[in-house]
């Protein structure tokens, strides 16, 4: 069981490295944005596996926190790409 978890950690680490290549040499900004979102999901799975390794439940809050913050960050970046402004003053005009 322990070997299985470490193999999973190594696989996620390698896929994180592969996504990091897309962050560094992605031709356009949306490529980098999607890659950063994927890195957030991989970070969540790494924390879940590490909480099994360390045998603690106190990392569970961190998982939900990273998911929420990654969602808000991705939404704000994509709104910046699309409109140029993150927070509008009034959209009803």
């Amino acid at each position: 069981m322990n070997i299985f978890i470490w193999v999973c950690l190594i696989i996620i680490f390698l896929s994180m490295l592969g996504t990091l290549i897309r962050v560094f040499k992605g031709p356009s900004t949306p490529d980098r944005l999607i890659a950063l979102d994927g890195i957030g999901v991989m970070l969540i799975s790494i924390i879940a596996l590490l909480s099994i390794v360390f045998d603690t439940i106190f990392f569970i809050d961190v998982i939900l926190l990273i998911a929420i913050m990654s969602f808000i960050g991705t939404v704000s970046f994509s709104k910046f790409i699309e409109k140029g402004a993150i927070i509008d003053r009034d959209t009803r005009r």
Binding site: V62, L65, V75, S76
Partner: peptide
Amino acid sequence: APGGGFVGGLLTTGAIVLLLLAFDLE
């Protein structure tokens, strides 16, 4: 457990920021 006033406040801020992103300031 881990948490407290600071993290809770920042998460509430995150919720309001999500509303600010989806709707507008007014």
